[in-house]
Design a protein around this nucleic acid. Structure first.
Length: 196
DNA sequence: CCCTGATTCGC
DNA sequence: GCGAATCAGG
């Protein structure tokens, strides 16, 4: 698979969007994430750190202490990665991951997560905004495409053709990506009255 | 363990 | 130029 102009463009686009090398590799197909990273570097669009900012170190792994002049490439200076405001908390798992029914011939078993359903639920506006943001980038996976480490946040109505799962990389062990973890796991406010 | 990007170096 | 192997970190 050669690096066609189109493929390179897609690479640039996705990289600019902040997509990970592995995701880009999957999207392109026929290449590994290493290939993607290698190409990214060759193209010169590796970091968008303007100045002084030591990127996530990784160098200096060789006996030779050689200086790397760093080929500055003034390319598309996209906005830096958004600054996440992590404030995850653990409480209970309000949204069980999708599971195989294995029960009767119920096509649409109820009792699944009902996240985008702010009824008596109050979620941080920021968290919601973040969700909206990332849903644009969602990989929109189907149930079968989900793996143990893809965000299982459902979007849309299961009884609707346009129903999909977020599919972005999960935070860590958790069933959702960072953004969705943010809204799925509420700290623990409200829901506490009982003075006496 | 999973993942991320960075670098090296034989091809 | 390419990318697998490796490295370094989260």
């Amino acid at each position: 698979m050669p690096w066609n102009d189109e493929r390179v463009e897609l690479l640039k686009k996705m990289w600019g969007e902040g997509q990970s090398a592995s995701q880009i590799a999957k999207e392109l197909g026929g290449v590994t994430r290493n290939a993607v990273i290698g190409k990214v570097h060759r193209l010169g669009l590796s970091n968008r750190s303007g100045s002084g900012g030591p990127a996530t170190s990784a160098g200096s792994a060789d006996t030779k202490s050689e200086v790397r002049p760093e080929t500055k490439a003034t390319k598309t200076v996209s906005k830096s990665a958004p600054k996440p405001a992590p404030k995850p908390e653990m409480t209970s798992d309000p949204a069980p991951a999708a599971t195989q029914p294995s029960r009767i011939k119920a096509i649409i078993p109820a009792g699944q997560p009902l996240p985008p359903q702010p009824s008596a639920n109050e979620i941080d506006p920021e968290a919601l905004a973040k969700v909206n943001e990332i849903e644009k980038k969602a990989r929109k996976l189907t149930l079968m495409e989900l793996t143990e480490r893809t965000c299982k946040w459902p979007v849309g109505d299961p009884a609707t053709p346009n129903f999909w799962f977020c599919g972005l990389p999960v935070q860590s062990g958790k069933p959702y990506c960072e953004a969705h973890v943010g809204v799925a796991f509420q700290p623990m406010s409200s829901r506490r009255d009982r003075k006496r």
